[in-house]
């Protein structure tokens, strides 16, 4: 299950009438939105949106009924258990030979402000200017110690660019910390603090 689906399911389950509707769905073979709405004293649109949301997620199926002048849907429960299962490895930034071999250096006139630790061997935070004109704002990003050591060894503007792997080696950052390093590189690239060569 990915984050958007989990978020949608979570938002449906968080409704204060969710438990009541599920109770009806479990005990009724099939139920319509108007039956749910009148049973629970809800607005019909509220019930309709909730049931349609569950149907999109595959928790309910719907069958079209053409009894009266206007056809309508009846909803049937398809799953007796609802499990939210998110594999966080999906969003893990896996280092590949290609992205570790990317050559980078600080961009000239990047305008970023670096705060150095008292020990003068790593950067504790970086302040970046975002937006333009009146909407210009300073955004301060606190770094982890490995990120700070990595940034400390980032080549200067105009200096020979180094690969991410080389900078990590110079900074003494272990290879298994590369996901957070790659995350930092992506952020710095987004705000044009670094340039890729």
């Amino acid at each position: 299950m990915d984050f958007p689906i989990a978020a949608k399911l979570g938002s449906l389950l968080a409704k204060d009438y969710a438990a009541d509707i599920f109770e009806l769905l479990v005990n009724y073979r099939a139920i319509s939105a108007s039956e749910v709405a009148t049973r629970l004293n809800l607005h019909i649109q509220t019930a309709q949106d909730f049931l349609e949301g569950l149907a999109e997620l595959g928790i309910l199926s719907k069958e079209e009924i053409s009894e009266k002048k206007r056809p309508y849907f009846r909803y049937l429960l398809q799953q007796k258990r609802i499990i939210i299962d998110i594999d966080l490895d999906q969003v893990k930034r896996l280092p590949t030979a290609a992205n570790l071999a990317l050559r980078i250096r600080e961009r000239q006139n990047a305008g970023a402000r670096f705060s150095v630790a008292r020990s003068d061997d790593y950067i504790t935070s970086i302040a970046i200017w975002t937006g333009e004109g009146r909407e210009r704002q300073e955004r301060k990003i606190k770094l982890t110690t490995p990120q700070g050591r990595f940034l400390f060894h980032l080549p200067f503007p105009g200096a020979a660019a180094l690969t991410i792997e080389e900078i990590m080696r110079k900074a003494g950052v272990e290879a298994d910390l590369s996901p957070e390093i790659l995350d930092l590189v992506q952020l710095l690239d987004k705000y044009e603090v670094i340039e890729k060569l």
Partner: peptide, 11 residues
């Protein structure tokens, strides 16, 4: 020459 000023310290 070529500037390249940055306020970062350099190891």
């Amino acid at each position: 020459t070529g500037n390249g000023y940055t306020p970062r310290p350099r190891p």
